[in-house]
Amino acid sequence: MASRLWLLLSAGLLVAACEAGRQMPKLSEKKLCADSECSHPILIARALQDFYPGDCRFIPIRQGQLVYVYAMLKGRGNLFWAGSVQDSYYGEQEARIGHFPSSVVEETHALTPASTEVKTTKWDFYCN
C-alpha cells in the first residue's frame, strides 16, 4: 500500500512539474553563434541601462553589468541577443542564459565571430 501511495505521489509531482514549464512563442527561427552549439561567447557587452524582463525568456540586467553574449537572433527577432549576466563572482544572481534587447548594451570586447547560423528550437524559448 505504501509503495502504491509513493508511486501515485511521484506521478502527481512529475505531472505538476511538467505543467509548470511551457513553450513560449519563438522570437526568431534562426540565430548567429560562434559554433553550432552556441557554447562559446561571441562578445562581452556592458549594460547601458536596466532591463526588467516581461517573461522568463529574458534575463534581468542592471546598468553597468557585464553580459556575455552567446547568440544573436536573426530575422524578425534580430533586436534580441542571448547571453549570461553574473554579479561579482556569482554573487546575488546565478549565471543563466536568457534573451535581452541588444539596444540596452554596448559591445566592449569582441571574442569570436558570430559566423555559424543555427536554427532555434523550442528549448530556446521554454519557460519554467
Rank of each mutant, 00 (worst) to 15 (best):
M1V: 05
M1N: 10
L5S: 11
W6D: 10
L8H: 05
A17Y: 10
C18S: 08
E19K: 00
E19W: 01
A20N: 12
A20V: 04
R22G: 15
Q23E: 15
P25S: 14
P25E: 15
K26H: 08
L27T: 08
L27S: 13
L27Y: 14
S28C: 13
S28A: 15
K30T: 15
K31W: 13
L32N: 10
E37D: 07
C38Y: 03
S39C: 03
H40R: 07
P41N: 03
P41Q: 06
I42W: 11
A45T: 07
Q49G: 09
G54I: 09
G54Q: 09
D55L: 13
D55V: 05
Q63Y: 09
Q63D: 03
Q63L: 04
G64Q: 05
G64D: 06
L66W: 00
L66T: 02
V67M: 01
Y68H: 10
Y68T: 06
V69K: 10
V69I: 13
A71T: 10
L73V: 05
L73N: 15
L73G: 13
G75M: 03
G75K: 01
G77N: 01
L79T: 01
G83I: 02
S84M: 09
V85F: 01
D87P: 11
D87Y: 15
S88V: 12
Y89K: 05
Y90S: 06
G91S: 09
G91R: 13
Q93G: 06
Q93R: 06
E94R: 02
A95L: 05
A95P: 00
F100Y: 04
S103D: 10
S103N: 07
V104T: 11
V104F: 00
V105T: 07
T108V: 13
T108I: 13
A110M: 04
A114I: 06
S115K: 07
T116W: 00
T116Y: 05
V118Q: 09
K119G: 14
T120G: 07
W123C: 04
D124M: 12
F125K: 14
F125M: 12
F125H: 15
F125Q: 12
N128V: 03
